[in-house]
């Protein structure tokens, strides 16, 4: 296992699922920017001032991709499932700005050749910011444009400090990460299209006496969907993540670059004027490098204030 994949698996699994899930974060032809999920699992519609979201997602691992891109299935009688409950809040600031905080509770279940273990703990807390310079649909010629930013804090337990032999109690990446990007989106009648690009960089950290620096990560995401008159929405999405090689003690680690691709189907249903439910099914397609391959299912319940 490369240093990078060892240190970031729980975080990336969570973020990849959130990437797909957040597509349904908006309704009424104001669909949520998929990219914003890297810095938060939901987003306020233009009329909303605040929201609180409680989400749960489960991600069983089905295999992994090695440094050559070869898919290796999870061996028989071996498995891994990550379950994350996330409590999030978003508040409108500065007119078209949104600040948020996501607090995940990470649970891992691992089993291998008759040995089974489970771990639980606080994951990495993420603070996010979004500012919409132009709302989707506001211009007939220009797409909506938003600045996306976020900081992930090392509040979870990093893999090297896990107590369980299979690392089921590792709940975080163990480092500070910052993300900056742009989101675009446009609507046409009931259709909406979204795209986003983000660059993520982490600070160096000390892992068992070794200085590790992960390479910058680039994420592109796109989605297309349909918003119904009653506020429900469905969307298909795809994303690709690429990370440059990591560095150990100032030496670039050849073969440690990572590539991940994902697809997903998301939906949102308004329960009342202030409550809505979002759900998603996602899968990482076996195209990439040095990444686990997982499936994902998630549900999020949101309460909004206008």
């Amino acid at each position: 296992m490369t240093p990078s994949s060892r240190s970031t698996f729980p975080e990336l699994a969570r973020l990849a699922v959130a990437l797909l899930l957040a597509v349904a974060g908006q309704v009424r032809a104001q669909a949520c920017c998929a990219g914003v999920s890297l810095v938060g699992p939901a987003r306020l519609t233009p009329h909303e001032d605040a929201l609180v979201a409680l989400g749960v997602q489960a991600s069983p691992q089905v295999g992994s991709l090695d440094a050559t891109g070869r898919f290796v299935a999870v061996p028989a009688r071996t498995g891994s499932v990550d379950v994350v409950e996330t409590l999030s809040g978003l508040v409108r600031v500065l007119g078209e700005g949104q600040v948020g905080l996501s607090v995940p509770l990470q649970q891992g279940v691992r089993w291998a050749r008759g040995n089974e273990e489970a771990g639980l703990g606080l994951g990495d807390v993420t603070a996010s910011f979004r500012y919409d310079f132009l709302l989707a649909g506001e211009s007939a010629h220009l797409p909506g444009l938003a600045l996306l930013a976020g900081v992930t804090m090392p509040t979870g337990r990093p893999p090297e400090l896990a107590h369980q032999p299979l690392g089921s109690d590792a709940t975080g990446a163990g480092l500070w990460q910052g993300a900056l990007g742009l989101g675009v989106e446009q609507t046409s009648g009931h259709w909406f299209l979204q795209g986003s690009g983000l660059v993520q960089q982490s600070l160096p950290r000390l892992v068992l006496g070794v200085h590790e620096t992960l390479g910058p990560t680039f994420t592109l995401a796109a989605s297309a969907g349909w918003a119904f008159d009653d506020g429900a929405a469905v969307a298909l999405s795809a994303s690709a993540l690429a990370a440059l090689p990591a560095w150990l003690e100032g030496v670039r680690v050849a073969g440690s670059e990572r590539v991940r691709t994902s697809v997903g189907l998301s939906g949102a249903v308004p329960l009342t004027a202030v409550w809505r439910l979002q759900g998603s099914l996602g899968a990482q397609v076996p195209v990439g490098l040095n990444e686990p391959v997982s499936l994902a299912v998630s549900l999020v319940l949101l309460r909004t204030w206008s």
Binding site: G137, E138, S139, A140, S306
Partner: peptide, 11 residues
């Protein structure tokens, strides 16, 4: 107050 309608698509 807030008008909870749709964003006006402008030129």
């Amino acid at each position: 107050t807030k008008a909870l309608g749709c964003v006006l698509r402008r030129r």
